[in-house]
Amino acid sequence: MSTRIALRTAALGYLGVLVLVPLAMILYRTFEDGLVAFFQSVTTPAAISAISLSLTIVAIVVPLNVVFGLVTALALARGNFPGKGILQAVVDLPFAVSPVIVGVALILFWGNDGWLGGALPVIFSLPGMVLATVFVTLPFVVREVEPVLREIGTEQEEAASTLGASRWQTFWRITLPAIKVGVFYGVVLTVARSLGEFGALTVVAGGVAGESQTLTLLVHARYIDDHNTFGAYAASTVLMGLALVTLVLMALLERRREA
């Protein structure tokens, strides 16, 4: 029993020092000059633009990934078609790809010297950032919804069809309510990851302040380029706040899932 406590303490100690302390330091530096200073730093035009750009990307990416995530989950859980096994593996692929590579691949494809010869203005603009973010969040909704679909089985759907419901009516009234929690969980994960995305965006985004800078790019730019460390900490705090909200939502949904 005491071994367990020793192990526990050692590992927690490590985590405490290397996770809590850095985050606490950021918070400290952010608020050591008071709330007003913090507020001013995160409401500069560049900051507002960055926050709104990040949220815009989320607003586009989430519906896209929900729709296609649902379609994919349905295909994998209910369908029977050649190549299904490969699709299953391919869906998880984004986890194995370094974000920087995602960005580079997009440039190689869409960039002015790229494969399409820059036919469409994707790189350094919103579409490119959306594409990068879509890629890295691709698996989340699928992975959360597919197991639920498998678990609830097809009986309820069959019953609905015998009662006269069309495929769409069955999906909308029976399937969707049953997988609700899985969808929400997937959305929460997607939002968290989208807001925190940095590596891929650093490659494909213009990073121009007030224009093509997301919150993460803002933090980086302030810290490294402008040496505005306070500004960087303040913006980081905003990101941390969003992460905290994510954690709370995840915990709440987790409890609903067990029910």
Partner: peptide, 9 residues
């Protein structure tokens, strides 16, 4: 859940 960048900073 913490964004990598925040963690790195």
């Amino acid at each position: 859940v913490t964004p990598e960048l925040v963690f790195a900073v």
